[in-house]
């Protein structure tokens, strides 16, 4: 317990930064991912094309490479100074948005076409077809995989430690200066992650049971 208690001044701010990375990139990825997901199911072929290229390109790029580009390459573009934290958030958001987009796209695809056709057949206008018939069903199908994406995002925030961001992944480097044994420190970090992920998984399971679509 001692390595944790004696170094709370490092552990607490580090995990606070991890949570900040997680929440800010999560919200940004949700917004960008919804836009891209919407593009991928839109009736305009060129929008679908742009969405597909973006998703396939970023999905096949290691997150480390994206962070590498933003941390080392971006300053060379002389577009104004951004902190490493901000750059990490941009990289995490761009990366996670592709997974959000895929989840949203497959969420729409789980709704049978007959549902929309039935809604149109009984004379519902577009707005009501969406808000009363399709979105409620798609939303329910999207929530559990979306939570998995966020769990992965939480774990991915550690990558930022390699690029000068002070967060949970960087705790070891800070504490090795104080002479703490690396293994104990790292096991504490791992344990805290297990707790955080378990909490998110429990939330996921509750939402899944609550909103399961009966078909």
């Amino acid at each position: 317990m001692d390595p944790l208690i004696n170094n709370l001044d490092i552990f607490v701010p580090a995990f606070r930064n991890t949570i900040i990375l997680f929440v800010v990139s999560g919200v940004a990825a949700l917004i960008l991912g919804t836009v891209v997901g919407g593009m991928r199911v839109s009736p305009v072929p060129i929008m679908r094309g742009v969405g597909t290229v973006y998703v396939n390109f970023i999905r096949n790029t290691p997150l480390t490479l994206l962070m590498f580009f933003f941390a080392f390459g971006y300053p060379k573009l002389e577009l104004g100074n951004l902190s490493y934290m901000t750059l990490a958030i941009i990289a995490l958001s761009l990366y996670t948005a592709t997974y959000v987009a895929e989840v949203i796209r497959s969420g729409f695809n789980t709704v049978p076409v007959g549902q929309a056709e039935a809604a149109r057949a009984i004379g519902l206008p577009f707005g009501q077809t969406m808000s009363l018939v399709i979105l409620p069903q798609a939303f329910r199908a999207v929530i559990p995989p979306l939570m998995s994406v966020f769990i992965a995002l939480l774990k991915n925030t550690t990558v930022a430690a390699g690029f000068s961001v002070f967060e949970a992944g960087a705790i070891r480097a800070y504490l090795s200066e104080r002479g703490e044994p690396a293994i104990v420190v790292l096991l504490w970090v791992a344990a805290i992650f297990v707790v955080l992920v378990t909490v998110l998984s429990l939330v996921q399971r509750r939402l899944e049971n609550k909103w399961r679509v009966a078909r």
Binding site: K155, T158, G162, R172, P181, L186, A190, F193, V194
Partner: peptide, 21 residues
């Protein structure tokens, strides 16, 4: 357990944590 621990932390445990042991 191993799905919940970030891969990077696992790598660090292997590379920085185990040698002193």
């Amino acid at each position: 357990l191993f799905r919940a621990i970030p891969v990077l932390i696992l790598m660090m445990i292997m590379y920085y944590g185990l040698p002193p042991l």
